[in-house]
Amino acid sequence: MNNIFVYCEIEDGHVAEVSLELLTKGRKLANEIDRKLEAVVIGHNLTGIEKQIFPFGVDVIHVADNSRLYPFLTLPHAEIVVNLFNEEQPEIALFGATSVGRDLAPRVASALKCGLTADCTSLMFGDHTENKTGKEYKNLLYQIRPAFGGNIIATIINPDTRPQMATVREGVMKKEVFSATHKGEIKHVNVDTILNEGHMAVQIVERHIEKQKINIKGAPIIISGGYGVGSKETFDLLFELAELLGGEVGASRAAVDAGFVDHARQVGQTGITVRPKLYIACGISGAVQHTAGMNESAKIISINNDPKAPINQIADYVINGNVADVIPKMIKFYKHNTK
């Protein structure tokens, strides 16, 4: 009872990266308050799935394996999670902030009448004293996220409802194997006693999932552009430099909203979190929403014609000038000085 639960997403027989990252975080949180880490896996043909999960330090895996449970559908998955949480009374429940987790978690939170915080960038324990009543709380989950378009950082707590629920984007937490030989217990959920016809109201007619084409998360070098890049044409310069250096092109939310580049390239709280060895921020002012997703880059260069751009604060090199002037010079030097 009162353990830490992670909902594990399954695609093609594999546990999603974000779920493994959350298991890693969940293990640390569980150790801090001396609780167990439990995983919830819902899908079909899941025999052997525990081999992907136990190495992350999971004590109990709840498996719901049924042909009606894959591909993901909101209602049957929500029903199973709600039933399980009512029985197990988790202290904390974590979901990936994906199109699955952000669809499922709110429905579950509503059914359980408990609090949910979306897109957290940090999770930690802390205490709280209620001002009015003086009631004290120990080890609440501090759910930290940028808010208001990323202009402020808010710490959210759920003092009185359980589980304390949060979603986290892929790449925000680090994935680390706890022990390759770790083994726990497997519990099977009796799906047939939970589901009825009503849960199958939504039918999937067609499904076309592609392998991820753009992978900026793993790129060692990222040339990232913001609204200040100004046009698709100037973005082409970023692509040219990225190709030359063996990197990828990233973007701020404003650049994506302006239609300069594809959403898959968005770095930041509502995009992807990256930790490359070099991050070149071109015409990016540096709202928290963006910096939350890149401030752990090993080296940061900011190219901006606003010397007061907030991103300059965290940059190792600040170039005060126009992106369209600087990038071609970088390309030229690199071509002349390397083979």
Binding site: A154, T155, P310, Q313
Partner: peptide
């Protein structure tokens, strides 16, 4: 059920950057 415990303005730790 969710309460805002704290709101912070974002202060980025200033690095010694090369201008």
């Amino acid at each position: 059920p969710t309460k805002v415990k704290k709101i912070e303005n974002v202060v980025l730790a200033k690095k010694d950057s090369v201008e």
